[in-house]
Simulated assay, not measured.
Amino acid sequence: MSKPNTMIDRYRWYELAGIYAGVALFLGFVLAPFVEGFLVSLKPLTHLFSSPYRFWPEKASFDAYFTMWERVPLLGRYIFNSILIASVGTLIGVILITPAAYAFARFEFRGRGPLLGAFLAVNMFSGAVLLIPLFRLMRTLGLLNTYFAMIVPGVAFIIPTGIWLLRTYMLRIPQELEEAALADGASRFYTFRRVILPLAMPGISVVAIYSFLTIYAQQFIYALTFNSKTEYMPLPVGLYAFFGRQDVIWNELMAASFLGVLPVFVVFIFLQRYLVAGMTAGALKT
Results as ranks from 00 to 15, higher is better:
271 L>C: 01
130 L>V: 04
80 F>Q: 12
98 T>D: 03
184 D>F: 13
118 A>K: 06
31 L>A: 06
180 A>I: 09
232 Y>L: 15
126 S>F: 09
162 G>E: 00
70 E>S: 12
134 L>S: 08
163 I>G: 00
280 T>S: 04
144 L>A: 07
229 K>Q: 13
36 E>G: 10
137 L>H: 03
169 Y>Q: 03
71 R>E: 11
166 L>P: 00
48 L>T: 09
128 A>N: 10
128 A>W: 07
26 F>E: 02
264 V>I: 14
261 V>Y: 12
247 D>I: 08
46 T>G: 13
180 A>Q: 05
128 A>Q: 13
188 R>T: 00
257 S>E: 04
188 R>P: 00
202 P>T: 01
95 I>S: 05
127 G>V: 15
28 G>A: 09
275 L>H: 02
26 F>P: 04
277 A>G: 02
149 A>S: 08
127 G>F: 15
156 A>I: 13
4 P>K: 11
280 T>C: 04
38 F>I: 04
283 A>M: 01
171 L>M: 11
155 V>Y: 05
186 A>E: 09
263 P>T: 08
16 L>T: 14
223 A>G: 03
118 A>L: 13
157 F>N: 01
163 I>S: 02
255 A>V: 05
173 I>N: 00
5 N>V: 08
278 G>F: 01
126 S>G: 08
167 R>T: 08
112 R>C: 02
113 G>V: 13
62 F>G: 12
55 F>H: 08
252 E>A: 06
33 P>C: 06
264 V>M: 15
261 V>K: 12
105 A>R: 03
6 T>N: 11
